[in-house]
Write a protein that binds this DNA or RNA. Sequence first.
DNA 1: CCACGTTGTGTTTTT
DNA 2: CACAACGTGG
Length: 720
Amino acid sequence: MNVQALLNPQQQKVVTTTEGPLLVLAGAGSGKTRSIIYRTAYLISEKKVNPYNILIVTFTNKAADELKERLQKTFDLHIFSLWVGTFHSICVRILRRESDHLDFSSNFSIYDTADQKSLLKKIYKKLDIDAKKFSLEKVRSIISRQKSSLILPEDFFSFNPENFFTKQVHRIYRQYQSELKQNNALDFDDLLMFTALLLHKNKNIKKKYANQFKYIMIDEYQDTNYAQFKLINLLAESHQNLCVVGDDDQAIYSWRGATIQNILNFEKDYQNVKTIRLEKNYRSPKSVLSLANSLITKNSDRHTKELWTDKESALKPKLVKLSDERTEADFVFEKISELKKKEEIALNNFVILYRTNAQSRVLESRSLNHDINYQIIGGVNFYQRKEIKDILAYLKILVNPEDNESFLRIINSPRRGIGKVTQKRLLNFAENYRLSLFAALGKDELYDHLGNSAQKVKNFFRQILDWKKEAQELEITKFLEKLITELELLSLYDSDDPQDISRSENIKEFLGATREFSENYQQNNQEEPSLVHYIQNLALQTDIDNYDETENSVKLMTMHNAKGMEFDYVFIVGVEDNLIPHSRSLDEPKQLEEERRLLYVAITRAKKNVFMTYVQTRRVFDMITAAFPSRFLMEIDEELLETENGQYYENQVPRTPVRRKKSVVTENKKHFKIGQKIEHAKYGKGVILNVDGRGIDAKLTISFSGGKLKKIIGSFVKKI
DNA sequence: CCACGTTGTGTTTTT
DNA sequence: CACAACGTGG
């Protein structure tokens, strides 16, 4: 393996320093991933380490897949026994294997944020707690924080002050854990917490995994939380062969419990730590890097380092002031068209970054006027869409009959005439007999309590039992097809309503994804995947894991999602106070620093140049509000940023928010008129027969040239 | 039991 | 605005 030719001296050092604790402070674009891959290859082919003895933790599943692929293709290594994955997926794997030592079984359900909230809502009712005083999101995040810090309900008051508020939170937390257990379900944080606790409590199991993972590498170490720190610490303490890679300047997940102290204190947590700094940036030109450096040096809590590059560029980052968010979107798309034409590059070399998902909406609707394909990454996760979650709930109930949450989701969806009253009776019965809802269906006495609905419930039970049997016999894709057919899901969404069209498309896409998973799995494992395996894997999938970077389209995503990626041209929209830094982060200096890092991450994605935009008025809900350039812009050296129109530091007169007039739009002022000719990307040209609603979101009834009649939302068509 | 209307409520970021 | 929670009439 010729390391010298392909890596710079620091990277080489990372690769060849295999023993003992190693801290790699790797700036943005400094060849971090490359170093990890080479280090792994070096361990296997030069040091003759068995792949089975290596653990690599990546930040996304996608990164894990790519790493595996490159090891296989570039280095021709057989690495199927190598463990690569995210913290969560690795924990699932361990928990499934070790379920004998745990008080849940290996077919556990994994609850996402929405599941957590719906469970909490039920608990509020039971404990008579007011959701207005104890906001669901707030309590959910407090509980999440406890778990990230390995604080169980019984230890709660050792770490939290005791007052009225915390007492209630404690009650909720205790009940929440007990209900999760009843459902044989774990939330995301449980996956980490229970794995860490298992290794902590059970010396034999700890020994087993510490022996297996003789070499450990962790990517994005700056974004790990205490549970993750502890987990790794337990595994690495005996051999100390731990390499962590990260950049404290890119720590952007403290709100999720990540603590930057993990990377700042690594040299104290482990002994005889070797530290290597990767400061040469291979991605961005000097102009972009100076901008980024100028910003990040305003942060105090950091390892000092300075990124450098020898890449020159005539281009200068630009700052552009626009009047409102629509003009902003138009500007961005026009600029992209212009650059695309001028440089003859494909659309996938452009990215538009924003602070909040809500900002994608305008961009989406304006893109139609510019003939630019786009792809949104993130937002509502594919697997969290209603129609998909419904199907998943069926699968979960078949795998884990104790999962009451999933049970309640499916019992009357699609409608089968089992309404609230019957459900209430069933719940009471199950509670009296201390049974799960599904198990209650197996008791004959139940049906005496159900009156007219008894037969419907019986039919439902029978159906579930049949599916359960089939799920075991059939290959998962086959089974899924059968389930979808028998539930008549596709015909349920068979209308011209764009929402229904997208729902049935999602279901088909889900089937496709299942088929792909099944085929891959069979190839790698020489056997069919089980349903449990499949759905536990699904729960941890994200949008980023599945997106296609080769597709010819502009990518739209949050700054958070852009971590680890790179693009020729980066457009950052809404560089305003209240967005970046976000209004919720203004008071706390620590949070302000994190917002600054977030903008730093966004800027350092650029291979060629960066455009930042801000507007003067922005619509928030139904209000038009005055917007102001981000305070971060004032910190940047003036000469590093070219302003296209107007100075960003000019004094603006704060304007009072303007409430949008509720004017009645007369027929001829409407955005769309009856008789108007339009064009749709898929259906072609047509004429509007009816307009329901106002403006761009009106529901249009359109007769298309082929004779087809469709109902379509205004924003999906172009006026011609 | 359910469809459909009305009222109320809330948007940071995600595994 | 968008969507969830509630109430009413069939």
